[in-house]
Design a protein around this nucleic acid. Structure first.
Length: 490
RNA sequence: GGCGCUAUCGUCUAACGGUUAGGACGGAGCCCUCUCAAGGCUCAAAUACGGGUUCGAUUCCCGUUAGCGCUACCA
């Protein structure tokens, strides 16, 4: 009894991610998935995705869809799949086995008497009086007569003083058996509880390492007891620090809404890689000051020893749902994308914003905005003037350069109009032509470029001018410069 | 209430018991520059509190405080 069998090192390492479809996939869940995946890849193991859908009341199809949507977007994949609702017989048998071994008992106390549990001063509630001591024959008789009962684990408080968990992250954690209540295995409806179903499945699926949120650390003492009662090899446990909201509360789907949903990040134009990179840095670090890391670098660097023990807060606000560091990491990853890849990713975002475009056009635009956007959706604000037939109205005063006036703007644009209608439409030729235009007018180059920029982009803040003109083409440029001139004159 | 876990700049995090407590994001400033970015440089910013142990404590121990979790026939 003292020395439990655990999974031999040679055996295949198996991890699992077991979300319950009671809400959309949130970033905490995503991080648990990622850490499991990383651990499996790093150690040549297998990753199982198990949908823990035993809570029929709260399960929704929408939640399950959201989980798959999020997971698929992450683009990490899994090796094996199952759902708990298909495995009721496993849980049922496990519960019966524990009852047969005398390590569980039937509790016929009606469910209504739950409120008075809180009135226990000092110590914890341990069990309902009388039920633990019911003889087996009496118990069988009442059950046979159809009396409803809860199956409870008989915590061995007499034979054992404490339960020990050897956690790969938190180390040795113990709990006194006198602080552990006789927890439920089967509800009075016969449906197994989370603890029962989860452990029975983990044992049956031969999960060797359980990496999950720290909220389960306190549950693990119960789980250890169940694995022992099942006479199953003991998996290794590793608990992960929790993700918190800026106000210190635990991240929750209900309280924090879509800001914590994985699909929110996807829809805003995060690169899955950047998102993964960000999440990895919450509660874990490679300890060598690296931050921007590729998937392979993460796999190579990931160890449980480097997982922190304290919770991490995701720094979002009411105004901005995204942690600035996540945004920065995304910008970093966007910059390291090749232009073809970036263009391809940008197209759907431009289309979603209502612009008509295609890969060829986007491929021209991509280099101009690559280091100017932080999220893929920014394409709609950073490059809108490339897509629009006609520029939205803007203030003609914007056309007036620094230390210049309306007259200067007009002269500049008229000069530019001539240049643009004859010059070769390449970056270098346009630069040379506009530069000499400035010289001729005896003004600074900046004073020359600004009116043109505003004329073709509709604003002062835009990508570099000559490349922009090159992409826009002579026709459009001429049209927009002419319109600017008209606006200045009126 | 009981039990468990945790505590370094605003946030994410480094630091064999010996460092001017490091890096990153964000902020401020400067440089570069056709605007905006990107890039380069600089600055501000932290060991929760109180006791020990030690020549020496961010680091080890105890206490306090605070936060989180578990304490359900939720997961």
């Amino acid at each position: 009894m003292a020395c439990r069998v655990s999974y031999p090192e040679i055996l295949m390492l198996r991890v699992r991610f077991a979300p319950s479809p009671t809400g959309y996939l949130h970033i905490g869940g995503a991080r648990t998935f990622i850490f499991n995946w990383l651990y499996a890849r790093r150690n040549g193991g297998t990753m199982v995705l198990r949908i823990d859908d035993t809570d029929v009341e709260r399960n929704t199809q929408a939640s399950e869809n959201s989980i798959f949507e999020g997971l698929n977007w992450l683009d990490l994949g899994w090796d094996d799949f199952c759902r708990q609702s298909d495995r009721r017989h496993v849980h049922q048998q496990a519960a019966e086995a524990i009852l047969e071994r005398g390590m569980a008992y039937r509790d016929f106390t009606p469910a209504s008497s739950t409120e008075e549990e809180h009135s226990h001063d000092g110590g914890p509630w341990l069990c309902n009086p009388g039920m633990r001591e019911l003889s087996r024959s009496e118990s069988d008789r009442r059950a046979g007569a159809g009396e409803p009962f809860v199956l409870r684990f008989r915590v061995p408080r007499e034979s054992r003083s404490e339960v020990v968990v050897k956690d790969l992250v938190y180390g040795r954690v113990t709990k006194s058996t006198s602080d552990l209540e006789d927890f439920a295995l089967l509800r009075s409806t016969g449906v197994p509880t989370y603890h029962m179903a989860s452990c029975a499945d983990d044992a049956d699926l031969r999960i060797s390492h359980i990496l999950r949120g720290q909220e389960h650390l306190a549950n693990t003492f119960k789980h250890v007891l169940i694995f022992e009662a099942l006479d199953a090899p003991m998996p290794q446990f590793a608990h992960l620090p929790l993700l918190m909201a800026p106000d210190g509360s635990k991240l929750s789907k209900r309280k924090h809404g879509p800001v914590v949903s994985v699909t929110t990040y996807r829809d805003a134009g995060f690169l899955p890689h950047a998102f993964i990179n960000f999440l990895c840095l919450l509660g874990w670090s490679p300890k060598d000051n690296r931050e921007v890391m590729s998937r392979q670098e993460l796999i190579d660097a990931f160890t449980l020893e480097n997982v922190n023990h304290s919770n991490a807060v995701v720094n979002f606000t009411d105004d901005d749902p995204f942690d600035p560091k996540a945004v920065w990491l995304n910008a970093e990853h966007i910059r390291s994308l090749d232009l073809d890849g970036l263009a391809a990713k940008l197209v759907p975002f431009a289309e979603a914003a209502g612009f008509e475009t295609n890969f060829g056009k986007m491929r021209q635009i991509a280099p101009l905005i690559q280091e100017r956007i932080k999220l893929l959706r920014d394409v709609s604000t950073a490059a809108d003037f490339f897509f629009r037939e006609e520029l939205p109205p803007y203030d003609p005063n914007e056309l007036i350069p620094q230390k210049g006036d309306r007259a200067m703007a007009l002269t500049v644009l008229q000069t530019a109009c001539d240049i643009v209608s004859t010059a070769e439409f390449t970056h270098d030729a346009l630069e040379a032509a506009l530069k000499s235009g400035a010289e001729k007018l005896k003004i600074k180059t900046g004073q020359m470029y600004l009116p043109v920029r505003v004329a073709v982009c509709g604003r002062k803040i835009a990508p570099p001018l000559f490349s922009t003109l090159e992409v826009l083409g002579r026709e459009t440029t001429l049209q927009r410069v002419a319109r600017a001139i008209k606006m200045l004159k009126s």
